[in-house]
Amino acid sequence: MDDQPALDDQSRAQLAELAEVIAPRWGDLPAASEIALSQAPLDRVLALRPDLLAPLKAVLDRVRGRPPEAAMEKLESTDAAGLHTLLTVVAGAYYAHPDVRAALHYSGQQAQSLPRDGFGAEELVIEMMQQPPIYRKVD
């Protein structure tokens, strides 16, 4: 078992700066810093998707030292795969957070009982049933 943290402190700080650009405060939605995205939310994503750790480290290395806005623009113009990795991690951590979900009024994809009153367009289906066939006859 590897007990080492997924990212070192330097990388977490870099990710925190980028996350603030990716997910700033917007209306009732908190900024990434307000949910400490680069801490437990990040670890949760990397626990669920350990395959993202190596490409995340790689993309952070590629833009290290750049201001966060400039880093994002660099990725956008030159590294679509790296940008996708970064957005997957940050947006994944952000939208899994309960404060964000609450602000969105989003309960997550939940198990539901199927309705017992039909599939929802019975009268329209009956109309369609009464239409002449539209498939090509082959004989």
């Binding site: 990716i22 700033p24 994002m72 996708h84 957005l87 947006a91 994944g92 939208y95 989003y106 994809q109």
Partner: peptide
Amino acid sequence: GPLMAALYPWPGERLWGA
């Protein structure tokens, strides 16, 4: 869910920030 919306390649638009 929201992640699908966030990561979808919105034509000609940025995918981060506001």
